[in-house]
Amino acid sequence: MNKTENNKAWFLVLPVFVLVAFSAVIPLMTVVNYSVQDIFDQNNAYFVGAEWFREVLRDPRLHDSLLRQFIYSFAVLAIEIPLGIGVALMMPTKGRMASLCLILLAIPLLIPWNVVGTIWQIFGRGDIGLFGAALNGLGIDYNYASNPADAWATVLLIDVWHWTSLVALLCYSGLRAIPEAFYQAAEIDRASKWAVFRYIQLPRLKSVLVIGVLLRFMDSFMIYTEPFVLTGGGPGNSTTFLSQTLTKMAVGQFDLGPAAAFSLVYFLIVLLVSWLFFTTITHMDKAK
């Protein structure tokens, strides 16, 4: 892209800069401020340096929920990305059916997150929900409210139900951008279905998949509402992810200092993983 050098472009970016500064930088500074002080009330605050960070990094609650979080986000990506690509490949390519499929697929994305939780809270119950009743009817002892493994699996299933559509929509638009000539060339070469996928479709999907993986990673890593509504983080701690641990700490116990330190560590982890992913992808591009 041949861009021209022009510092006046800053004027166009200024509104965004001011808005985001107001809604991100000021709050973030407040968090930093809390994370290094011990605050008793308005007038009694003591500088404690890295004390809270040390405390938080040693906190077993953080380790547990961090581990759960990584396993969860990994599972989310491992299921949703291939499934999303598969769904996109199966979708009709044009006409009314294509529009209909798009609309139906997009429905879960537009339901408020707590309603998603509510839907599955009802749907998964053994007494009044179809899903829970069906599983119990098949002789599987399923109860998301008392069995940790069931609860974990249900939260994962909700996420798959909720978000695979996003990956599918992204891939679908990526697939539509492939010129017909590519497929014709493949046909002349008598390429197999797999070869078409591997050498034509997949490379063309890369840019939308990067968006998809990043969005899914970030959002699954911040998951809060669905487990909150469904199980409240239980049974035990099986569905307590990072955001739950943090909100419990900040709002429940009002431990401002440690909570702020936790926040920053949390933020940095998301940032680091996203950055690593992003840089790896761009380097792979350059290597080619």
Binding site: K8, A9, M222, V251, S263
Partner: peptide
């Protein structure tokens, strides 16, 4: 356009998409 700090600004904007809302509650 290319302008001073454009790449950094763009990445900084994106980092806000990565900030967990729970961090910003209080």
């Amino acid at each position: 356009y290319r302008f001073v700090g454009d790449k950094h600004l763009f990445f900084w904007l994106l980092t806000n998409r990565m900030a967990p809302p729970a961090v910003f509650l209080l």
